[in-house]
Structures are given as C-alpha cells and as structure tokens.
Design a protein around this nucleic acid. Sequence first.
DNA 1: GGGCATCCTCAGGGTGTCTTCAGCAACGGA
DNA 2: TCCGTTGCTGAAGACACCCTGAGGATGCCC
Lengths: 225, 225
Amino acid sequence: MRVLVVEDEKRLAAGLKKGLEAEGLAVDVALNGTDGLWMATENPYDVIVLDIMLPGISGFKVCATLREEGIWTPILMLTAKSGELDEAEALDTGADDYLTKPFSYVVLVAHIRALLRRGGRERPTVLEAGDLRMDPASRKAWRGDTEMNLTPRELAMLEFFLRRRGEVVSKREILDHVWDYDFEGDPNIVEVYVRGLRNKFDRPFEREAIETVRGSGYRLAADGG
Amino acid sequence: MRVLVVEDEKRLAAGLKKGLEAEGLAVDVALNGTDGLWMATENPYDVIVLDIMLPGISGFKVCATLREEGIWTPILMLTAKSGELDEAEALDTGADDYLTKPFSYVVLVAHIRALLRRGGRERPTVLEAGDLRMDPASRKAWRGDTEMNLTPRELAMLEFFLRRRGEVVSKREILDHVWDYDFEGDPNIVEVYVRGLRNKFDRPFEREAIETVRGSGYRLAADGG
DNA sequence: GGGCATCCTCAGGGTGTCTTCAGCAACGGA
DNA sequence: TCCGTTGCTGAAGACACCCTGAGGATGCCC
C-alpha cells in the first residue's frame, strides 16, 4: 500500500509520514505541487493525500491535472479550516474525499483506509486484546459480547492503545496521535480520558486493562487485562 | 543501524558516540551544522541526533534543509533547557522527536530505539541475564516468571546493568548514564538504588545478582546470579 | 429554546518516588 | 589489632505525578 502525501507544512508532513508508516503503509512526501504532480504521474500510488494550499501549483490544479491525464488514484484532499466552499470544489475537481484541518491521525487514517477499501484490496481489520475488541471501520467497541458506548474521542484513544498494546505509550504520544495535531491544551486531558475508558470498561474484580506506568505513561495489557 | 550525531559540545558528542556504540550502533559524529548537513545528505542513516545550538548552520536549518531535499530520516532534536518554544519549533521544522537538555543516557537511547522501531526495521529487544529479564518497550521486568514492580529509576538502572552484564561498572558511570548528565547530588544515591534492586530481586538463598566490587563499582552476574 | 452529550479546564488531594542524611558495618592495609 | 575508607541501611522530608470531581463551553437534536 503506497501513499503519497503532498503537503508543504513540514511538521504536518513529517507527522503524517511517521504516523502512516506506523500503520504499515509506504509513504512518500512531496513538499510542493510541482513535485507532487510529478511523483503522482511517475509512480503507482494507492492513495494520494493532497493539501489545497501549496506553493507553486495548487492542490486543485494538481488534482484536476491528474484526472485529465487519466490517473484515477483515490485522492484525499486537505482543506483549510475556514473555507466551506473548498469541500464542494474539492469534490468537483475530482477528489474522492476531503478532510478539514486540523484533524487527528486516527481520523485521517480512518479516511485513508476507507479509500483503500473502496479500491477493493484491503481486508477490514478488527483490533483485539483479550476480551476487548474494536472495529475501526464501523467505529464500535466491545467488551466480551456487549458493546461499549464510547464517545468518538474515547474510541480514538482505545484504537491507539490497541494498536500499541503491551507497549508503554507516553502522554505526549497519545496527545500527538489522538488529538488534533495543533492541540496545545492541558495534557491532563489524557488522564481524564483514561479514567473515562477505565470506567466504561467496568471490570471491578479484575486488574486494570490500562495500567498507569508512573513517570512514563500508560500501557494497555496485551491480553486486555 | 547507523546513527549520525550532530553536536558541538565535544565532551557530550564523545560520550554519546561511545555509549551508542556500546549499544551496537554505528555512530558518526559531526561537530557543526555544515558537516552534519553534508554527512546526512551523503550517507543513509537510520536516525539523526541533532543539537539545535550549533556553530555555523543551526539545527533547525539543518533539519529543514534535509526535509526539503526529500531526506526523511528520523530526526531526534536536542533542545536547550529554557526554551519551551523550541519543542514546537523542532517539530515544525520536521523533527520526529525532541529531548530537553539535560537528559539521561538511558532516556536518549530509549527515544532512539523508539524511532528505529517506528522505522519498522528493528525487532523488539528483551534483555536477559539468567532468570532476570526486562523489556525496554513495555518497561517491565521479571525474575523468572513473576513480574517485579520496579520504579522508573530502578528500571533504568536495571536496563543499564543488563546492557553491560558481566562488566564492572563504576558508580560514576552509573550516575552518568542513569541520571541526567549534569546530576550533581550525592553519589550515595547509587548505593541506595542498588539496595532497592537487590531487595526486589528477593533471592535470599542464592548469591547476589549484583555483586559489589569494593573500590571499583558493581557487576551484574552474566547469568543473573 | 431546552435538553443532552461531548469536550476540555481547573484546582485539590493523595500517593509513590527521589533524594538526603547520619549512623553503623565490613573490609583491607599498616 | 587498630584505624581509615568504603559500602550498607533505615528513616524522613520534599516533590512530582496522577487521580478525581465539578463545572463551563460548545455543538447537536428534538
């Protein structure tokens, strides 16, 4: 699965590359429209993530040009916060999906996976640890056979924990992946959400599924606790 | 696994080189931004450790330039203590991770290993000596089959002992690696922590896993005692 | 508009961890 | 054997870290 990211904000580009590679995807990055267009025409990608605001050629133009050249690789457009018009225009020029900045990794990954699936190749994945289970595609989670009623943020966090089960993940890593990339608030929010998840797991007589590793972060027990 | 260290403080650079090589990594050192940039473009490294304050070209500039040239080697930035802004700026220019000075050696190694792991090549490592075992990724340690409840500092120390098992390590070395490199407190702290570990190993009828070598330091028995 | 769910902030309190210190024990050389 | 040096031990204070409950802000649906 090869992904091309066309994005000029270096921090965002680096973050996307890092995050998507962690998902097992092969990622190339172009920092401007010209390079992006060239790379997209020269290499067969499975999906293209394309920012609208780019130095040189704009994302719209890149998208339109690719379609004119008969390249129908699924394109996910990244639009700026303000522009509501962008959505329509993105789809008009031939994009398959769009995402409004700022977004979080898990949302982006979900959209990318949806596009890949639409391409027909990828098999739906279900994440598991012990009797904890979640389906990233349908955004549902279960404990044993009963579905848990989790908020979007809680789901995103559980997904992140499940993808790195058994490992200690720092609060900063959690913030970087589960919250919008420009989140600058109180890291205490992570503690609050961990508590929320623990409450909803609701297994009073067993050990915690999410263990606190004082000074390092949290760890989801590999067997779900 | 090749690592490039770009750092102008010669003592720190030398320490890093020596320490990282002891971890089995191949280390090159550049003492200024110009050399660092050149080496990073000419050679394929698996990770780059990059100080911000450099003579000539700054670390920010080096990082930004590399990204512009399409080189996406993971970069770990070293930021000065004061600047909280530095963190954001480091990530803005395309760094993958940052560490605030002063840091301890084991923390640095942990971050480097995390970056290498994310790159997908490195296999998770478990350190062992006899029936002592620890997993740096999950920050857990076992004696036989039972998990030991160690504090972060104790874990860091055990990790250091395990990486140099069979060798005599001086108190000074332990301080330099397990504590922040500018730690100036009472060296007695090492004795206190050795005792803590011995207690938690809890093997009354066998010989000590950590032997005292009077006048020189301590040694972790290669077979765990 | 009113109710509701979600998200985030904040401050207080509890607890584990880190570090220091002083006294004691063990060791080794004279 | 004596004595200086080095290492061990237990206690205790300071501190950082994490948990918790409450409450305000926002957005959405009826």
